[in-house]
């Protein structure tokens, strides 16, 4: 009968904590860049100019339909040779997950913008707003509110996807767990603790997301499409 012993894991709690911080760092960076880039891609794809719409559509489709791990390997192993730049695991992860999540965010933005009634555009035009003004002041504020649940879901997906950086030796939570498991010969305890940490953090985020969603539902905006 196997005797569980968590003391070797506890002795390395600092490593795990640092790993969690690094996980959050990658997630935060990719989230911030992904949102900005996603909005830009969505506006481009909605544009009537083909020169803007087609490249945006191409980026969105490619990054939504290829596996994230393939993208990460491409950005880490192939891209540095093409552009002749040294790539760190963090940089590769930040770039990959920013673009990857921006492709998904773009579709959320697009769906939200399209869902706003024509009348809102017409009213904005009637009081003399230009297209960009109407978008910024009238359409986006309403659309973003409807998009929040989808954003939260994507953000949580993003956090789970960041575990892939462990495969290119970035010291995130999973990588730290792997190190500890090899050092202490306690893979069962280490990987179980790592899984539990992920579970607690991700559950906390999704509970917060659900609560926020309910608040928006109460304030009269349907968030369910």
């Amino acid at each position: 009968m196997y005797v569980w012993d968590f003391t070797p894991v506890l002795a390395n709690a600092g490593l795990l904590a640092q790993g969690l911080v690094n996980t959050l760092k990658v997630t935060g960076t990719a989230l911030a860049c992904g949102l900005v880039l996603g909005l830009a891609l969505a506006l481009m794809r909605l544009s009537r100019r083909r020169l803007a719409a087609w490249p945006a559509g191409f980026v969105i489709e490619v990054f939504r339909t290829t596996p994230p791990l393939v993208q990460l390997f491409w950005f880490f192993f192939a891209l540095p040779l093409i552009i002749g730049v040294e790539m760190t695991p963090f940089l590769a992860a930040a770039v990959t997950f920013s673009i990857q999540s921006s492709a998904f965010f773009a579709e959320v933005f697009r769906g939200g913008i399209v869902s706003i009634e024509r009348g809102q555009w017409e009213a904005a035009r009637a009081i003399g707003m230009t297209q960009p003004q109407a978008m910024r002041r009238i359409i986006l504020p309403q659309a973003v509110k409807r998009m929040i649940p989808a954003f939260m879901e994507r953000a949580i997906e993003l956090m789970k996807t960041t575990t892939l950086v462990a495969t290119i030796a970035y010291a995130d939570l999973l990588f730290a767990a792997n190190e500890i498991a090899q050092k202490t010969f306690r893979p069962l305890e280490t990987f179980t603790v790592a899984a539990l940490i992920y579970f607690v953090v991700i559950t906390a985020f999704s509970l917060a997301a659900r609560r926020l969603e309910r608040r928006f539902a109460v304030s009269g905006e349907t968030t369910v499409h």
């Binding site: 575990t163 999973l174 498991a181 069962l188 990987f191 790592a194 899984a195 992920y198």
Partner: peptide
């Protein structure tokens, strides 16, 4: 609510 890669490594190691 756990990443699939963590699950795979758990089952493997």
């Amino acid at each position: 609510n756990t990443p699939v890669l963590v699950q795979i490594l758990w089952f493997y190691f």
